[in-house]
Design a protein around this nucleic acid. Structure first.
Length: 890
DNA sequence: CGATTTCCTG
DNA sequence: CAGGAAATCG
């Protein structure tokens, strides 16, 4: 950073500032003194500047590198951080595989036309995947070197070539695999499928990451980052992390551990200093975290291992249950499908051959998991809208599904030692049905599709829960470094995510966290009619508001049934999601994008993502934000968030930053939904509508660059929950400006007490709100005075000679400009007093300019002083929370 | 040092 | 309109 420029810039600024920076409330004498000092400062400036230069050079040249580099590496670092933290969060959960499997499988079906290999790879990979995953978990348990188990053949191209960003996943991969296709030994096939799997998983995870660019990840990532930064020496932690990431992820794909690993060095060296400096300058939370860092690392490692184990167990459990469900499913459908069995077999061979080692149970079982109930409903009323829409597509999928299962069945017999009989029987039944399931399979297809959706979302839900919980724990560790690993953090975890009343999510050791999931599945397992029960419950836990139930977003069923037309929501959201995930995802790993006009189809690929993303901001803000944001003035969800206070107690010192961000973010976000705030209230009757709207909102917001992290957190704050400062508050403030240009902070507190009503527990938050309000008024004034000056000068240019000629009426241009700014909708009757004040101001400016006072650097100060005395009382109405409704009718 | 205000930039 | 910086005051 050119210090010269900087210096000059500073110089210029200083000169300017010295002149004009005069607050209205400042003492009169200060002006004089200031000016006296100015001259002195002018002389001193050179030295002063050089001092500043020194500072700058500290920032920029700390390590002999340029600032530019520093910036770049910062960016890189951020990216890496994200990726890393993401992996951190997700990787240990072997369940992630499930997602990819599900997606993959559904894709594979449609991929019939696709290169046979693609399809086959996808399908066949499933089984080995599981095995590998298991093996991986085992090995990782022991040696914590998952990467080894994940690339069984070790034949993957060294990741060295891959850059940070997005190693081209497929091209390499496919070619690579295809080259191996020739040797069809079982082993090779295994590897092949593995690669495919990995590729797909990578893609899926990409999706996930995109979706969950989330608060969670982000915030925790940030903390971790700090840790890492402070810790550069002990790379152990990173290494571990990288390993776990690589272990479950495609190591040679998007998240290449080695690239991650390679980065830190440069990071630490080049950026490190500059970054640290900067951070120190801004906020000094580094030291605190440093203290407990090693402990944290250790505990986290342990935790990770624990979680891994738990997850594995959970996975197995799920598999069992799914098998059971499968059975039931087929029993139910036996009768229906029998009539239809004719075709469906035409393409059997092509897949059959390929799917030899597909021992994947979970894929199929999961698919049918949690769908029983759904599918029953479907049987009654569901078909019409679905089955008629795109029979071919569904049919294909259905067939593929069946076929796949049949194949699995076959495979199972080979390696099914541990699998048990029931499953095999079930699969056999399936097989039969697969043979049968053909021509008339619309129903079946539809059902299957639905089930797939459900299953996917459910699994995703579980997965997310699995990984988000641990993540949070980690975050808490950073936030409250004093807390011991498991217990306190997890308890806080539960409190933030699931208020006591709902109990089901208990004290939560890492174990019990996952145990909960298993429990839910068990419920399903024993034939409970509501497979989604557990997820729903969790949803409840998060306060009705937060996570739109998968069911709701499902197949558009929820929304439709609710009777509320939800025309845009999903159609809007879909493209966004798709875009976000990048081409690879949409093209390969996801099922073919459903035709837009297919209401029922939308959810299918989406649901996975939708259902996924919301949970990610389930515990977005471990801390104060949770409590605050979810205060719901509307009171529509009485149960609410008792968690607020609790969380607050555990809030870390730097919660301030978060809250601040949140405030502004919320405003931003709200402005996105903006203007319709009032309407949202009315819509609240329909939760579904609510959910989808919020969803799309969040999705839209997530497109908005850096904000997305925060935005994802509380998408609802913008639309429905008015915590913090909402657009309405802004509007109110603007209207208040018509009465008072210089409100005291106390006044603001009074008039915006509703904003903080809940936040009183969080002083910092309150302060933020207040200063935010102050800032608003400051901005208002700025605009106001700019307009005044502008029009005054304009008047002078127009030849106006006397201030008396200047009047400000409601039709005056000046007023229109102001009104446009503060009262855009013109739905508020501006008090006459404001016109008078404006007129006075204008004349003051006019006179001052005419008198040539504007040569004086602080010439405006006098005007400010005058104007600040013209404040009038703000009507009591403004104190009412509903003031807008009352005011705007006028 | 914190609060407040203005200026500047995006 | 927000963020940042600087100036100023108590």
């Amino acid at each position: 950073m050119p210090d010269h420029d900087n210096a000059t810039l500073l110089l210029a600024r200083q000169t300017k500032r010295r002149r004009v920076d005069i607050g209205v409330k400042r003492t009169v004498g200060s002006v004089i003194f200031t000016r006296a000092r100015e001259t002195l400062l002018d002389r001193m400036n050179p030295t002063h500047c050089s001092d500043q230069d020194g500072d700058c050079s500290l920032i920029g040249h700390g390590h002999g590198s340029t600032n530019g580099d520093g910036e770049k590496s910062n960016v890189l670092r951020k990216l890496l951080k994200r990726a890393n933290s993401y992996e951190d969060a997700i990787m240990p959960f072997s369940g992630a595989t499930i997602i990819s499997q599900l997606l993959k499988s559904s894709m594979g079906k449609n991929g019939g036309s696709d290169s046979g290999f693609q399809g086959s790879g996808a399908l066949s990979s499933g089984g080995s995947e599981i095995h590998n995953e298991d093996a991986c978990s085992n090995s990782s348990r022991d040696q914590d070197s998952p990467s080894d188990c994940l690339s069984p053949g070790h034949h993957l191209p060294p990741p060295t070539s891959s850059s940070f960003g997005r190693p081209q996943p497929n091209s390499n991969h496919n070619s690579h695999t295809s080259s191996q296709t020739l040797s069809l030994s079982t082993f090779d096939l295994d590897r092949l499928s593995d690669e495919h799997l990995r590729a797909k998983r990578a893609r899926v995870e990409n999706i996930i990451r995109g979706m969950s660019h989330s608060p969670l990840v982000r915030s925790s990532g940030g903390d971790q980052d700090n840790l890492r930064e402070s810790e550069n020496g002990h790379r152990g932690d990173r290494g571990e992390r990288g390993d776990s990431g690589g272990g479950h992820n495609a190591s040679n794909h998007n998240d290449c551990p080695s690239s991650l690993l390679s980065s830190p060095g440069s990071r630490g060296g080049v950026v490190g200093v500059g970054e640290v400096y900067r951070e120190n300058k801004r906020k000094q939370r580094l030291p605190q975290q440093q203290h407990s860092f090693t402990q944290l690392v250790c505990s986290r490692q342990e935790q990770r291992q624990e979680e891994r184990r738990q997850l594995k167990l959970q996975l197995e459990d799920m598999q069992k249950q799914l098998r059971q469900l499968q059975e039931k499913f087929y029993q139910i459908y036996d009768s229906e499908t029998e009539e239809e069995e004719d075709n469906g077999e035409g393409r059997e061979p092509e897949r059959g051959g390929e799917r030899e080692e597909d021992g994947n149970l979970s894929e199929d079982s999961i698919r049918s998991d949690g769908l029983e109930e759904r599918h029953r409903d479907r049987g009654r009323h569901g078909h019409d809208d679905l089955s008629d829409l795109d029979p071919g597509l569904f049919l294909d999928r259905a067939r593929a599904l069946l076929r796949e299962q049949a194949l699995i069945d076959g495979d199972l017999e080979e390696d099914a030692d541990s699998r048990g009989e029931e499953e095999r029987n079930g699969e056999r039944g399936m097989k039969r049905r697969a043979a049968a399931g053909g021509g008339g399979g619309r129903q079946l297809a539809e059902t299957l599709k639905q089930e797939l959706n459900c299953a996917v979302s459910q699994v995703v839900d579980t997965v997310v829960k699995g990984f988000s919980s641990p993540k949070q724990t980690a975050t808490h560790h950073h936030g409250c470094h004093s807390s011991t690993p498991a217990a306190p953090s997890s308890s806080s975890n539960s409190s933030s995510s699931c208020p006591p009343p709902f109990g089901p999510l208990p004290p939560l050791t890492p174990d019990s966290r996952f145990g909960g999931g298993t429990l839910g599945l068990n419920l399903n397992g024993d034939g409970s009619p509501t497979p989604n029960y557990h997820s729903n419950q969790r949803l409840h836990c998060f306060g009705d508001v937060i996570v739109p139930s998968p069911l709701d977003s499902f197949g558009g069923l929820g929304g439709r049934l609710s009777g509320v037309p939800t025309p845009n929501d999903q159609t809007e959201a879909l493209p966004l999601v798709v875009r976000k995930n990048g081409p690879e995802n949409t093209n390969h790993s996801l099922p073919p994008p459903p035709p837009p006009h297919h209401p029922s189809l939308h959810p299918s690929p989406l649901t996975a993502s939708l259902g996924f993303s919301p949970p990610s901001f389930r515990h977005p803000f471990p801390l104060p934000l949770m409590g605050y944001p979810f205060q719901n003035p509307l009171g529509s969800h009485g149960g609410g968030y008792p968690s607020g206070p609790k969380d607050h107690h555990q809030s870390s010192p730097d919660s301030m930053d978060i809250t601040r961000e949140a405030v502004s973010l919320r405003t931003k976000m709200a402005s996105l939904g903006g203007g319709h705030m009032g309407h949202h209230h009315h819509r609240q009757s329909s939760p579904n509508q609510h959910g989808s709207e919020s969803l799309s909102l969040s999705l839209i917001k997530s497109e908005c660059g850096d904000l997305q992290d925060m935005a994802d957190i509380s998408p609802y704050s913008g639309s429905t929950i008015q915590e913090g400062l909402s657009p309405n508050h802004l509007k109110k403030a603007k209207l208040m400006f018509f009465y008072t240009r210089y409100p005291s902070s106390n006044m603001l507190k009074m008039f915006f007490s509703d904003v903080k009503s809940n936040g009183k527990q969080i002083l910092k938050f309150n302060r933020c709100i207040t200063s935010q309000l102050i800032k608003w008024f400051s901005n208002f004034r700025e605009f106001y005075y700019i307009q005044m000056e502008k029009f005054a000068r304009q008047a002078i240019n127009d030849g106006v000679t006397g201030a008396e000629e200047l009047t400000v009426g409601r039709d005056a241009e000046l007023f229109r400009a102001l009104n446009m700014h503060y009262n855009k909708a013109n739905d508020f009757e501006v008090p006459d007093r404001f016109l008078e004040v404006a007129q006075v101001t204008l004349r003051e400016f006019f006179n001052a300019i005419v008198a040539g006072k504007d040569a004086d650097p602080s010439w405006k100060k006098a005007i400010y002083k005058v104007i600040c005395k013209l404040d009038s009382e703000v009507p009591e109405v403004f104190k009412s929370p509903n003031c807008l409704q009352e005011l705007l009718r006028d």
